[in-house]
Design a protein around this nucleic acid. Structure first.
Lengths: 355, 355
DNA sequence: CGTTTTTTTGCATTAATTTGCATTATTTGA
DNA sequence: TCAAATAATGCAAATTAATGCAAAAAAACG
């Protein structure tokens, strides 16, 4: 076993062990972002603070009163290496919001990673955290969890889900405002003269709630603006036919030549694929057709800066924590969803239409 | 990576760091325009201001005890409407939620009625409350307000709008969860075997946000269920033709005979009209066609109990107050919308489909 | 029980933020 | 019109935040 201790975390993060220690002991005067990084890396490395054993180590800690509320934070994701490790890692931002808000309110948080492939509570990845779970007063969920796990967890403690939408009754959710986001994207296009606007998404094996939600937002906004949308300009959303990746782009290219002047994509990664595909087919973006995305991820190399909606991860984390505090204090109350405005970031993929 | 701090904002805006700081700490004597610019740039740069967390609440802060916060509550409604006692008066419910929550949190509230016909702040109805306004730390708005009034008020103090949806940036909203509501209505219908479901609304002289929103929810849910919706089964929502009241019902009757087995109405009053109209034309509800509403108002005499979604007015009031308290403490941060689950109340207007 | 390893904490340092006071417009009011 | 009041901001000092260093305290290990 490679020794996982605070020193290792400190080295990896290029900070001192003192700082790492202070993160775990809930010291004041720690930058929330630093704390978030430490917690996240600790979760990845599987480091757990002096809780596992006999609990209450410090005698003076108990003396200082404070009923001490503790929240668990579960991040449902592969070892997190996947994306960019650089400055705007989504879960890191979310965690920063969580730790900041939790600290201000005297709440302790414990962060764990769980395997997305685990579909039930008896999976090792959940058994591992079983013993911690008893101490938690509530649970923050980051990214989508299997439905069975939700059901099982929901009866044990209050849950608040961040970034991913659950229709599951009894679970509060905090997410970006899909409606407002799509609405501003469309407005942005309209200001550039676009009228015939299509919607582009793709099918996912696990149902992507946000794809439906953003599609609905698209339909709503177009209706408000009294702009007609031909069902043929909707790619990959029921009832249109389900297409493979290559086919989808081929189809979108065809519709573009037919007169669509702009595409609203349900997510940035789709937008990048679409742009690449269109360009490969000799269609210029944004010269011939404009494209907007949603999520605000960094452009892959060779791709232009996308006009997109940035997701306010940090604020989502903070608001979710606040919501969980309210829920823990007062168990009743209906389920509620909070949607936070994302910012429109104009990029180089939207241009004015040529008359 | 590039250190984003107040100094950077100050340089970019050609002002001193002192001024920037005062914006974030909510100091008096700061030009609202300057403040707006600072917040705008801060959002773009991704600067996040942090509350003083270690602040031992020391010094004078503890001495002054309660800062005494007062909220104004403006109800935009005709007096007759407001004092109507015949059925569960919504604004009464909302007020109950507000006062309850305010009391618990030591906030004072002052309630005023304003005339919906007044479109600007210099109208007598607003001048009347002018002197109170200075004392208020925030404002709760019940029912829709004219856009010009919102703009004027928004720069003076934090606003939270209840029940009505504003796309207006900078105004937080608390409302029933239209999506969840429509979704449960459709699920209810589907459990009774319905597959061909239409959407019924009517046009309003002032744009009814909720009508569009509920329509979008309808489209979304139907897409999720993989149920096709013919545009011809959508009444009074763009791009379908705009019809008068009698025509609308005539048209809905025609579609019903064509095979629509259920109508989702955007609001209860529409549903009652529709039911009356259909029955007059010899179409039995729910025998031949089912109807759902939205709002949970009491049935007028001669009308059956409607299957509908009850709006949790009281909780909306309480949640809105909570939100305003948070806003006053920290009055920057993105706009957010809170949607609270309404309860599906099964009535006598939905029946199982006959094979 | 002594070592060794790991974690916590007092103190110091630097950067960032806040605030008291002064300065410059801008209005108000005879 | 000119002093007085008001508003908005800058300057610089005071305060606070964030973190490292190294010593002290706890745990872990034999």
């Amino acid at each position: 076993m490679p020794e996982v201790n605070q020193q290792l975390i400190a080295e990896r993060l290029q900070i001192s062990v003192a700082t790492v220690s202070r993160c775990f002991t809930n010291h004041p005067g720690i930058n929330p972002l630093t704390r978030a990084r430490v917690f996240q890396l600790a979760a990845e490395l599987g480091y757990t603070h002096q809780e596992m054993r006999t609990g209450r180590a410090s005698k003076k800690a108990t003396a200082t009163s404070k009923p001490k509320v503790t929240f668990g934070v579960l991040i449902c994701s592969e070892e997190e290496e996947y994306y960019r490790k650089d400055y705007q890692n989504p879960s890191e931002q979310i965690l920063a919001g969580i730790t900041e808000c939790a600290h201000v309110n005297g709440v302790k948080v414990e962060v764990h990673l769980v395997d997305p492939k685990a579909v039930a509570l008896d999976d090792p990845t959940y058994l591992k955290i079983e013993k911690f779970r008893r101490r938690w007063n509530g649970l923050l969920l980051v990214y989508p969890f299997p439905s069975a796990v939700l059901d099982a967890l929901a009866i044990k403690m209050p849950l608040v889900s961040l970034v991913e939408q659950y229709d599951h009754a009894g679970i509060d959710c905090v997410d970006v405002d899909h409606d407002k986001g799509v609405s501003s994207a469309i407005e942005h296009l309209r200001e550039h003269g676009h009228r015939r606007i299509g919607f582009f998404t793709r099918r996912y094996t696990v149902e992507a709630s946000w794809s439906f939600r953003r599609y609905a937002a698209f339909v709503e906004k177009m209706a408000r603006l009294r702009l007609t949308v031909s069902p043929r300009d909707i790619v990959n959303m029921f009832p249109s036919k389900e297409l493979g990746e290559a086919e989808s782009i081929e189809y979108a290219a065809e519709r573009t030549l037919d007169g669509v002047t702009a595409w609203v994509c349900a997510a940035d990664h789709q937008a990048f694929e679409l742009i690449r595909g269109l360009r490969k087919r000799g269609i210029d973006v944004p010269g011939q057709v404009s494209v907007t995305g949603f999520d605000g991820i960094a452009a892959p190399r060779g791709c232009p800066v996308l006009s997109t909606i940035e997701i306010p991860f940090r604020e989502i984390g903070a608001t979710g924590t606040l919501r969980l505090i309210a829920r823990v204090k007062k168990h009743f109350g209906s389920t509620q969803h909070v949607f936070i405005d994302g910012r429109l970031r104009a990029g180089a993929t939207v241009a004015s239409i040529r008359k």
